[in-house]
């Protein structure tokens, strides 16, 4: 599998993400600069966490205007897999690949801690290695992770089963107490209708090796690998 890790000015999880794919997963990762305009040959494009363009104007706003984002949009339109992590999720929202927007956490504090998220679907390229309802321990690190969409959009997201992860407790119970930032419907991760674009606030690359305290993030990377390999076999 070949994964592109997009590097915007201000991305700061690009190397961790590269490491997770290249070393924890054992697959090929390459950095792609924000001025690049081609993503041909990649199976997966990852928008990593950080503070792209200083998060000026709005989180992810300038990244959504950058040259590589046009390439990401056509890559997604052609069915390519796109994973946005944290700031990468914010970029996917700003450029319209996923619905809704992020606003500051309801308590106005930057959160940097492990959270528990319940896997809502196991039939996607990003979660096929998860058990039904599996609870994953993965860190978050954000100030603007408070997911917002108006009622019409939220209803559509729920009706289409587009919520991939919800903040929960260790038994998978979802409540206001398990919501770390005020996100609507405890949404921690979303998938588009077509099922090839995912955005999530937790950082799977920070839960990719035992030494980091959790390997739960590997469920996501291994799912993607499995999907890509099975697709390659079926295309032969």
């Amino acid at each position: 599998m070949r994964a592109a890790v997009i590097v915007f000015p201000g991305s700061n999880c690009d190397r961790d993400t590269y490491w997770a794919v290249e070393h924890a997963l054992g697959e090929s990762a390459e950095f792609v600069w924000h001025r690049d305009t081609s993503l041909s040959g990649f199976d997966l494009v990852i928008l990593p966490g950080g503070f792209s363009y200083g998060d000026y104007l709005r989180t992810g706003a300038f990244a959504s205007f950058s040259p590589v984002t046009k390439a990401i949009k056509s890559f997604a339109e052609n069915g390519g897999l796109v994973l946005g992590i944290c700031n990468g999720f914010q970029v996917l929202l700003e450029c319209g690949l996923l619905p809704g927007a992020m606003i500051p956490n309801d308590h106005l504090r930057f959160i940097c801690s492990d959270v528990l998220i319940r896997t809502e679907r196991t039939d996607t390229p990003f979660s096929n290695e998860a058990e039904t309802g599996q609870v994953l321990r993965i860190p978050v690190a954000h100030f603007e992770g408070n997911y917002f969409a108006d009622k019409t959009v939220l209803d559509r997201i729920e009706a289409n089963n587009q919520v991939l992860f919800r903040y929960s407790d260790s038994n998978g119970n979802v409540s206001a107490e398990t919501n770390p930032n005020g996100s609507a419907n405890n949404i921690a991760g979303l998938i588009n209708e077509r099922g090839n674009v995912v955005g999530m606030m937790p950082h799977p690359e920070r839960a990719s090796e035992e030494v980091l305290g959790s390997t739960d993030g590997m469920v996501i990377f291994k799912s993607i690998l499995r999907y890509v390999e099975e697709k390659a076999v079926s295309n032969v």
């Binding site: 606003i103 500051p104 309801d106 308590h107 106005l108 408070n146 917002f148 108006d150």
Partner: peptide, 13 residues
């Protein structure tokens, strides 16, 4: 500014 239906934690604080 944020629309009325969107929470504004900064304004509230």
């Amino acid at each position: 500014r944020k629309t009325e239906t969107v929470a504004d934690p900064e304004g509230k604080t």
